[in-house]
Design a protein around this nucleic acid. Structure first.
Length: 872
RNA sequence: GCCCCUGUGGCGGAACUGGUAGACGCGUUGGAUUCAAAAUCCAAUUUCUUCGGAAGUGUCGGUUCGAGUCCGACCGGGGGCACCA
């Protein structure tokens, strides 16, 4: 009987409606079953869903459906990271209101996501630009203010000249804005900061417990936090050389052991001592100005010479009052790390060595490799930075650098200047506080008012939300809120006098730092319902791109701690499990007139040669490198087109096949067709056999010919369960192919009426298993197949089947037999055969006897159920 | 510069704690079916081979009865951080 081709355009919407009508994926917070919270990073509503989204959400949906089948109460929500620059750019270019643009995009993308058949709880959906959401975010801001986790300070900030806004350090990539790509400038502005540095140590330590995070992400965060242990020490300034009565220069060093190799001091151009000295020295003042002007972009940093200017000030060595060292202003010393001053030890640091060589400063080796000759060991062009033995360092000679560190610390802690110890141990972090002020319209308003008399006055919670005005003007660059007097000018909440609103809005990374908590009770009129949040959090499995390894994930970890202090949650970490998926990449095609989309090109493959031609003109085009799908290279494939021609199940299945999920996946037309072939094949095999299986009760075979069918099905069931637990989707896909290959013969026989009752019962059991294990990946197909073989309940409501332990273990095993470590044959023997039995059986094998030629083997190694190795 | 990851057929990739290298898919080749095509099905597909075998997981060495897996050195590819004292 011929079966019609599977038509996803018909079946997929039909099954989605069945799920929706039954509200299968709406989650009840009071459900008594164990919870499982699976979350994919919510999308920015750019207008269209792209293949990266499809991959991300396909993975999340497999986990959600699998865990649901395993009996968990699964929370799987979706929302929109909806504030941000593109909406304002669209407003400026197309005269459309950011709000209209954003909500229009959300509607379009929601429709696309729904066509994927994702098991999402849409009843919890929200966008971060919803007044209801940013209202609660303002509430959080006020709580953080109250708990002293937010402050305002004037600071040098990263200014993006294109977006005309401030960027956080994390948002500056290679000296350019993370969004605009423009070289970042430095400006002095008064900004709001979150005190993420209060948690430096905790954020660092807790990384060790995040054992379900990729090692790589933990390492990146560790490096970003950048803890270093060193000594904060004071050097006495020689009074007659100093412009002020400031008695000492404070430096921070991680290498106090190299103290006897010191040859100069270097301070930042903004260091108070430099400013003081520059007052009387115009040349120095000019040098400091030059330092300040550079240091804006990485490009200049990399090419810039290490330069210094001798201030004429001298300091005394702590262990030798006659030893005076010059103080330089140097362009490579940063004011905002440590104390803004260092001592230079040329022999132990390449940069210091270059500096010393340039300015003719002494170079004394203080560490040499183990076993070296102290008398002849010299440093000239290359600094020695490795471990070794101390030399030329008086009481430190012969020690290891580590012991020398401790010895110097001990002595200087005990020494004193003016009743204060000369040094103290100090830990420093690279992590800076998070500047969140953005001079933009389309963001969450910061709920404070600036009063001429009272200063900064927080808006009362009862007066929230501070809502964005709708009537705005994008004709001029800069922040429209600044130019909106009726919104901006208000009465002071405290004194009633003239005041103005804060016109800066929050960094959009604030919005995404707590949305996962909001999903647990999005209806709540406070930021969270603490009971609900504590019940659901942490997120059991979070999935998204590696590009958020630092920014979003670190901010969210900070937010969770801050929210805990404010009483909104009682967990420490937001994400228990993290998975970073790879990108979707595609070949590029370049014709004479520029890049071409895959849809405009036909690729021929013959005898290993691939050539591409334009569909319209037939001209040959160049096949370029495989790159991340991007509009600029035009190597994009629209998910809508794929779903329209192959169906959502095919798109999902392909995204999970082949490549391991953490690696990039190459989108190929032939790959999609392969996935579609699988869908069609399953449908055809099951459809043809369905009449024979309809009235049969499923029963796995324990003996007879059909046992092979049952073994294959139950082994696959076991393996797929293990693969899905490990998120090894590609392996699970391979096993499904294997099972279908095994079942194809018996299914064809069943369709032809050639099978006995026991075989049909085993086949029905196997088919039911196949339908269940495919369901997380191809949910529509599974429902359709299930219904044609007479299934009475929805697959989406069917528990994950249990494998039969007897069927996954074989009675006999086939052992490879090696001679001197090379495989020469096989031995089939009882699974539980003991060592002696195996040895005797092996010695009977003809090829073993041939190899021995009458001698006794030197050794026989038997690894039970694994391998036998005969050593002759 | 520092830190991390990675290297397996024509391609994407399998191979659990050292134990049958190349599962599964893609591509290719041959065949069946067809008036023909699409679709489908069957077979072959690491290399060399005197058809007995031999070699083979970036290169060179080591440990082991046995190494893709462990150790050392080197080479290639990718990523992160980067005047951080």
């Amino acid at each position: 009987m011929a079966i019609e081709r599977y038509n996803p355009r018909d079946t997929e919407p039909r099954w989605r409606k069945v799920w929706d009508d039954k509200k299968l994926f709406e989650t009840d917070n009071d459900d008594p079953r164990p919870k499982y919270y699976v979350l994919e990073m919510f999308p920015y509503p750019s207008g269209r869903v792209h293949m990266g989204h499809v991959r991300n959400y396909a993975m999340g949906d497999v986990i959600a459906r699998y865990k649901r089948a395993r009996g968990f109460n699964v929370l799987h929500p979706m929302g929109w990271d909806a504030f941000g620059m593109p909406a304002e750019n669209a407003a400026m270019q197309n005269k459309v209101h950011p709000k209209d643009w954003t909500y229009h995009n959300i509607d379009a993308m929601r429709g696309q996501l729904k066509s994927m058949g994702l098991s999402l709880d849409w009843s919890r959906e929200f966008a971060t630009c919803d007044v209801d959401y940013y209202h609660r975010q303002q509430h959080l801001f006020l709580d953080f203010l109250d708990k002293d986790l937010v402050y305002r300070k004037q600071s040098k900030v990263n200014w993006d000249p294109v977006d005309q806004t401030v960027l956080a350090n994390e948002q500056v990539i290679d000296g350019c804005g993370w969004r605009s790509g423009a070289p970042v400038e430095q400006r002095e502005l008064t900004q709001w900061f979150f005190k993420i540095t209060d948690f430096s140590q905790e954020l660092l330590e807790a990384l060790d417990d995040l054992d379900q995070w990729p090692e790589k992400v933990r390492l990146m965060q560790k490096n970003w936090i950048g803890r270093s242990e060193g000594l904060h020490m004071r050097w006495q300034i020689v009074p007659e050389t100093s412009p002020s009565d400031n008695g000492s220069l404070e430096v921070y060093t991680t290498r106090p052991d190299t103290l006897f190799g010191a040859s100069f001091m270097a301070i930042a151009a903004d260091h108070p001592l430099a400013l003081k000295a520059a007052e009387k020295n115009p040349d120095l003042a000019a040098f400091c100005d030059a330092c300040r002007r550079m240091g804006t972009s990485v490009a200049t940093l990399e090419t810039a010479e290490k330069e210094g200017f001798d201030t004429g000030i001298k300091v005394r060595h702590p262990f030798d009052p006659d030893w005076l060292l010059p103080v330089y202003v140097a362009n490579f010393v940063l004011m905002d790390y440590g104390t803004g001053a260092i001592f230079g030890c040329p022999s132990g640091d390449q940069r210091d060595l270059d500096f010393a060589n340039k300015y003719g400063l002494p170079v004394t080796a203080v560490v040499m490799p183990e076993g070296g000759d102290a008398a002849s060991f010299q440093i000239t062009e290359e600094a020695y930075v490795d471990d070794g033995v101390m030399i030329n360092s008086q009481f430190l000679d012969g020690m290891t650098p580590k012991d020398a560190f401790d010895e110097v610390a001990r002595r200087l802690e005990a020494a004193d200047i003016d009743g204060q110890p000369q040094a103290r141990r100090e830990t420093n972090y690279r992590l800076r506080d998070w500047g969140i002020s953005r001079q933009r319209y389309w963001g969450c308003p910061i709920p404070v008012v600036h009063c001429n008399d009272c200063g900064v006055v927080p808006v009362a919670k009862a007066d929230l939300p501070v809502q964005l005005p709708d009537d705005i003007d994008f004709e001029k660059p800069g922040n429209p809120l600044d130019r909106h007097p009726t919104w901006r000018d208000v009465a002071c909440p405290k004194c009633g006098g003239e005041a103005r609103r804060e016109t800066d809005t929050m960094d959009t990374f604030v919005d995404s730092s707590w949305y996962f908590a909001r999903f647990t009770a999005p209806w709540q009129d406070t930021p969270t319902d603490p009971a609900a949040a504590d019940g659901w959090l942490p997120v059991d499995q979070y999935i998204g791109g590696i590009e958020h390894a630092i920014l979003h994930l670190l901010y969210s970890r900070f937010f969770t701690r801050a929210m805990r202090i404010a009483g909104h949650v009682d967990v420490k970490e937001p994400f228990k499990g993290l998975f970073t998926q790879g990108m979707v990449v595609h070949e590029t095609y370049k014709g004479s007139a520029g890049w071409l989309t895959p849809a405009e090109v036909r690729v021929d493959e013959h005898e290993g040669h691939r050539r591409a031609f334009r569909l319209d003109t037939g001209d040959e085009v160049e096949i370029g490198s495989i790159e991340k799908m991007s509009k600029s290279k035009k190597n994009v494939v629209d998910p809508d087109d794929i779903i329209a021609s192959y169906g959502a199940d095919t798109a999902r299945f392909f995204m999970l096949s082949d490549s391991p999920p953490e690696r990039d996946v190459i989108w190929t037309e032939s790959g999609v067709e392969g996935a579609h072939r699988f869908v069609q094949r399953v449908w055809r095999l099951l459809g043809e056999a369905a009449p024979a299986l309809l009235e049969i009760d499923a029963k796995p075979a324990k003996e007879g010919d059909a046992v092979a069918i049952s073994r294959a099905a139950h082994k696959t069931l076991k393996a797929v369960g293990e693969d899905l637990e490990k998120l090894a989707f590609n392996k699970a896909v391979a096993r499904m192919h294997e099972l279908v290959n095994t079942l194809s013969g018996p299914l064809s026989d069943a369709a032809a009426g050639k099978n006995d009752a026991a075989t049909l019962a085993a086949l029905k059991d196997a088919v039911s298993i196949l339908i269940s294990i495919m369901a997380p990946m191809t949910p529509h197909l599974s429902e359709e197949c299930n219904s044609v073989i007479g299934g009475s309940t929805l697959v989406a409501e069917t528990p994950w089947p249990e494998f039969d332990i007897d069927l996954v273990t074989e009675d006999t095993v086939s052992l490879p037999v090696q001679i001197n470590g090379k495989k020469r044959g096989e031995l089939t023997i009882a699974r539980d055969a003991d060592q002696l039995t195996v040895e005797q059986a092996v010695l009977m094998l003809p090829f073993v006897q041939a190899a021995l030629s009458g001698n006794t083997p030197r050794k026989i190694i038997v690894v039970p159920q694994r391998i036998v190795n005969v050593v002759v």
